[in-house]
Write a protein that binds this DNA or RNA. Structure first.
Length: 191
DNA sequence: CACCCGATTATCT
DNA sequence: GATAATCGGGTGT
């Protein structure tokens, strides 16, 4: 299998476009010899200054600094006391901040490792079908904050020739403002 | 420095 | 369906 990192310019585009384009791409995690790969199946775009639901809406803070930093890097935050969530910084030149939340992936390689990280025997379909679950299965925490995601390393995004049947847009989850924006994207893969 | 609450999930009933 | 778990950033005193 080819796991070539995405080009940095991939992330230097409109955040919403990048969120859609990331569907069907691969999330790759290497821990020593262990390799873990999943196909991205669900994302959400957070566009920044014009998006009240974005963490970066109210300006730059130490926590959200990565969203204003170089594109293609990781923005990781801790939520509800229990969970980490992984974002990719992505924006076009006109935006000051913006990122894409990786909400779900389909397990591809290293499934046993993911199950070990998640603790118990969990059905494949339930393994990484939420942002906190993805972070746990891929052993992602704040150590990877700001990590570069477009070159081979501990964590990166790779191109993948997934056959896409359809993309579904809907309202984002778990937010109270800007619910009218259809910035949540799910992919249906061909069998 | 105190208080509030969130881009969630597991585990009950 | 409802709720607990459980941390740290943001806001205002």
């Amino acid at each position: 299998m080819q796991l070539n990192p995405l080009n940095p310019s991939f992330f230097n585009r409109n955040t919403v476009i990048v969120a859609q384009d990331l569907l069907g791409k691969c999330l790759v995690r290497t821990i020593g010899d262990q390799v873990v790969v999943g196909i991205i199946t669900e994302t959400e775009a957070y566009t920044g200054a014009d998006d009240p639901a974005s963490h970066s809406f109210k300006g730059k803070t130490p926590r959200t600094a990565a969203l204003f930093g170089p594109v293609g890097h990781a923005y990781i935050y801790f939520i509800y006391g229990n969970h980490y969530c992984l974002n990719v910084v992505a924006r076009e030149a006109a935006q000051s901040s913006g990122g894409v939340l990786i909400r779900a992936v389909e397990p591809l390689i290293g499934i046993e490792y993911m199950q070990a990280n998640r603790g118990k025997k969990i059905a494949r379909g339930q393994l990484t079908n939420g942002p906190g679950k993805v972070a746990q299965a891929f052993a992602i925490d704040k150590k990877l904050y700001g990590h570069c995601l477009y070159k081979k390393g501990e964590l990166y995004l790779a191109d993948y020739a997934a056959s896409i049947e359809a993309i579904i847009a809907s309202s984002r989850v778990g937010i109270s403002s800007a619910q009218e924006k259809q910035y949540r994207f799910q992919v249906i893969l061909k069998r």
